[in-house]
């Protein structure tokens, strides 16, 4: 069997196994629909640190340490750490990695980083280069808000198309053996830009990228949306996932009840987040808590996880550039 399908999909012959997960979320997420699934809920969004950036770093450290522990391993057993976050120069990831005596790769795929890190990590394991890899991402509402938007105490209203950056970190431990949940293939996405300039409307900016990657995945693997128990996009939000469904239908793929979106799922409608959640942490905490537990329970056997990211910076949007989107997908199966 070829290790590559079509132009963008790679197939793992020695499928990497998911042997440990851990999620940590902020207070607001702790009141959301999935509060019973998260492993740790912060009592204070500062997490005992002085700044929100430090709190974000500490959340990531906490998630990685506990995920390694869940997998029954020690830090020195780990071969590689793959992390990413939203802050400039991905400082949360690199600073968290400083605390571990493990080789480290930093990724930036905006909110798609969770899927990207799983795909990259799986390739290393399948290739036989490493056997134990931690893939983690994090985001923090307050640090993202001050970097991308306005001061927290500014008395303005959030636009109705906006999404709420999730405060949270999630970590997945991949291994060459030891579990019945495995990553069977991954589809890398292309940067897609349909000319959206509204920085608040990230869902609309990312939906075309999600469409491109999902369709490529279905074509490459010769499957259809009905073949999956769950198709989960990253953080398109309510509006973005409606747009994705329309786009997919136009291309002849109908997404049905088995489709959902992390951003749309995470917050309940009383939490005033308008279109739902976003950020690296959003897809990371949903995947590593809810989806993994449901897979363990046997509810889902075949999950397509397609995290989406908007690759903008504050400079690019101030200079009037359109927002490019990216989406990477990994297929997770339980034997």
């Amino acid at each position: 069997m070829s290790k590559r399908l079509g132009s963008q999909t790679i197939v793992f012959q020695n499928s990497p196994k998911i042997i440990g997960n851990y999620t940590i979320v902020g207070q607001k997420e702790g009141n959301s629909n999935f509060k019973n699934y998260f492993d740790y809920i912060l009592k204070n969004d500062l997490f005992g640190e002085k700044t929100y950036e430090s709190a974000e770093r500490k959340m990531l450290e906490h998630a990685i340490l506990n995920a390694i522990d869940r997998a029954g391993l020690k830090t020195q057993d780990m071969d590689l750490l793959i992390c990413g976050d939203l802050l400039n120069q991905i400082i949360s990831s690199s600073f968290a990695a400083r605390e571990f005596d493990v080789t480290y790769l930093g990724l930036y795929g905006a909110c798609s980083t969770m899927a990207e890190s799983l795909a990259v990590g799986s390739s290393f394991i399948d290739g036989g280069y490493f056997s134990k890899i931690a893939c983690a991402t994090c985001s923090h509402f307050s640090s993202a808000e001050r970097q991308y938007r306005f001061p927290l105490e500014l008395g303005n209203q959030r636009p109705p198309v906006s999404q709420w950056t999730v405060t949270g970190a999630g970590c997945t431990i991949l291994s060459d053996s030891g579990s019945d949940k495995e990553i069977v293939n991954a589809t890398f996405g292309k940067v897609t830009d349909f000319g959206i300039t509204d920085v608040n409307n990230m869902g609309a900016a990312m939906a075309p990228a999600a469409m491109s990657t999902l369709i490529k995945h279905f074509e490459d693997t010769k499957t259809s949306p009905d073949d999956y128990d769950l198709i989960l996009t990253g953080d398109l939000g309510k509006l973005g996932s409606e747009i994705l469904m329309d786009l997919m239908e136009n291309k002849g793929y109908k997404l049905k009840d088995n489709y959902n979106d992390c951003g749309q799922m995470i917050f309940n409608c009383n939490q005033k987040t308008y279109q739902g959640g976003s950020g690296c942490g959003c897809s990371a905490v949903i995947l590593n808590s809810y989806v993994m537990q449901k897979m363990d329970e046997g509810v889902y056997k075949k999950v397509l996880f397609a995290a989406t990211g908007a690759l903008l910076s504050t400079l690019s949007s101030q200079q009037g550039n359109t927002i490019p989107g990216i989406c990477h997908a990994v297929e997770i199966r339980r034997k």
Binding site: G26, Q27, F141, L152, T167, Q271
Partner: peptide
């Protein structure tokens, strides 16, 4: 603004 910024710090929005 100077005085109050020295005294207070911004807090995460909670709703």
């Amino acid at each position: 603004a100077y005085i109050f910024a020295l005294i207070f710090s911004s807090k995460t929005k909670k709703y």
